[in-house]
Amino acid sequence: MERKLAETAKTPLSAVDRKILGALQEDGRMTIQAIADRVGLSASPCLRRIRQMEQAGIISGYSASVDQKAVGLPVSVFISIKLERQRAAELDAFSAAIDRWPEVMECYLMTGQFDFLLRVVCADLQAYEQFLRERLTQIAGVASIESSFSLGQVKQSRVLPL
Rank of each mutant, 00 (worst) to 15 (best):
residue 4 K to L: 09
residue 7 E to W: 08
residue 9 A to K: 15
residue 9 A to Y: 08
residue 13 L to T: 11
residue 13 L to A: 00
residue 15 A to G: 08
residue 17 D to G: 00
residue 17 D to S: 04
residue 18 R to I: 15
residue 19 K to R: 05
residue 19 K to F: 07
residue 21 L to M: 05
residue 22 G to N: 13
residue 22 G to T: 12
residue 23 A to W: 04
residue 25 Q to T: 15
residue 26 E to D: 05
residue 26 E to T: 09
residue 29 R to A: 08
residue 33 Q to T: 15
residue 36 A to V: 15
residue 38 R to K: 04
residue 40 G to M: 01
residue 44 S to V: 10
residue 46 C to H: 05
residue 49 R to N: 08
residue 55 Q to C: 00
residue 55 Q to G: 01
residue 58 I to Y: 06
residue 60 S to L: 11
residue 60 S to A: 01
residue 62 Y to I: 05
residue 63 S to E: 12
residue 64 A to L: 09
residue 67 D to E: 11
residue 69 K to L: 02
residue 71 V to W: 09
residue 73 L to N: 10
residue 73 L to Q: 14
residue 75 V to Y: 11
residue 78 F to H: 06
residue 79 I to Q: 04
residue 81 I to G: 01
residue 81 I to M: 05
residue 83 L to W: 09
residue 83 L to H: 01
residue 84 E to K: 06
residue 85 R to L: 09
residue 86 Q to H: 12
residue 89 A to D: 15
residue 93 A to Q: 05
residue 95 S to I: 00
residue 97 A to S: 15
residue 99 D to A: 12
residue 101 W to S: 01
residue 103 E to P: 06
residue 107 C to W: 14
residue 107 C to P: 02
residue 107 C to A: 12
residue 110 M to Q: 08
residue 111 T to N: 02
residue 111 T to Y: 14
residue 112 G to V: 09
residue 115 D to Y: 10
residue 118 L to M: 10
residue 120 V to D: 01
residue 121 V to N: 00
residue 122 C to Q: 03
residue 124 D to I: 07
residue 127 A to Q: 12
residue 127 A to F: 10
residue 128 Y to D: 09
residue 130 Q to Y: 09
residue 134 E to I: 04
residue 135 R to I: 11
residue 136 L to G: 08
residue 137 T to V: 12
residue 138 Q to F: 10
residue 139 I to H: 00
residue 142 V to C: 04
residue 143 A to N: 02
residue 146 E to M: 06
residue 148 S to K: 13
residue 153 Q to I: 15
residue 156 Q to T: 13
residue 156 Q to N: 10
residue 159 V to P: 00
residue 159 V to E: 07
residue 161 P to I: 02
residue 161 P to G: 00
